[in-house]
Design a protein around this nucleic acid. Sequence first.
DNA 1: CCCTGATTCGC
DNA 2: GCGAATCAGG
Length: 212
Amino acid sequence: MSWTDERVETLKKMWTEGQSASQIAKELGGVTRNAVIGKVHRLGLSNRVGGKEESEAETPVASPAAAAPPSAPPRAEPAPAATVAAEPAAPRMPDPGRVERPAPSVAAQVAGNVTTLPLRKAIVPAGQPLPPQPSANEISPEALASVREVEKRAKRLTLMELTERTCKWPIGDPATEDFWFCGLPSTAGKPYCEAHVGVAFQPMSARRDRRR
DNA sequence: CCCTGATTCGC
DNA sequence: GCGAATCAGG
């Protein structure tokens, strides 16, 4: 692949938006992040740091919307917006035989943080059809116990530290400082670690059977 | 380990 | 000009 005007344009745009070289490389296809970085330098649009130029024109991200807002409370799906949006193929449809419950409310409960989240069901950003709002106390004792244990080992990652391989289960109250993401290694293809997958995804039969 | 960007240098 | 290899760091 060669650097056509169009590809260069995409490169410039994404780089300006604060996208990483690897993200840009994925988007373009046929090039590595090294190629992207090399091109960025040749184009002379690397960050103007450690050198001349005015005072201190902070330029981490051109558009706040492009990157994940540091304090954005997760709604239905806590995955980083930027990554998800950029991903061409993200079917993410709930398994026919399974139901995904919204993580935040459950997480709050499990964490013993019964604080109600006033902004929880206020606005649903976009995307998937709304999952059925669970009455929430339908988690098996085993799963709940396992989750509690795991959360003691949670890596306590911030939103920005999440990757495709980290568990994106939110813990705590997003409205406070006492909030972080699990961060343990996520199950292949799933957004959560083993323990949290067990709570997030459960067979419909289980939901049905669990009388109360 | 996962990831970042920066630099070098043979092509 | 290009980008793999390498470096330096989080």
